[in-house]
Amino acid sequence: MIKAILIFNNHGKPRLIRFYQYFAEDMQQQIIRETFHLVSKRDDNVCNFLEGGSLIGGSDYKLIYRHYATLYFVFCVDSSESELGILDLIQVFVETLDKCFENVCELDLIFHMDKVHYILQEVVMGGMVLETNMNEIVAQVEVQNRMEKSEGGLSAAPARAVSAVKNMNLPEIPRNINIGDINIKVPSLSPF
């Protein structure tokens, strides 16, 4: 079972937190901090699995993570999950994000945190892998989006506002995110 999915950036700022097992609020924050601490000090050329740490579920607990440019995607799982399987699931998830957001970058995750949650809901449900087929996930998300569009044209306005904010010069957020072999660039924009 997947116990938790954590996404944070290189500075440990959480971008998406999803727990599939209950932990009290402060415990959650401690798990995030500790996980970041463990993951961030590892080089890129070491293995993507981490064991130890007795935070979640004692010894039957493993961290499987991938590092994309500015973001860490960490899945906390127990022994019933396959290590390499989860590793590729992360890739599927990120590729799906990329498809849904068209060149995903950290800002998308920040400003559309809710949407990322919806996409994740189609991949993992209650700690179980629900769907691993990217097209299927995208299709499900799109069905929901269509419902959003039909609900009112107003949603267009905030979207524009977001893209405006997104284009502003934000400190410490780099401009491209590297998803495996797909290199996505956020179009470079002149700062304000």
Binding site: I110, F111, A157, P158, A161, V162, V165, M168, L170, P171
Partner: peptide, 16 residues
């Protein structure tokens, strides 16, 4: 102001 940009404001505020 649309609230989404309020979220934006909040986020930007935090980053700064």
């Amino acid at each position: 102001l649309s609230s989404t940009s309020k979220l934006g404001n909040l986020i930007r505020g935090i980053t700064e």
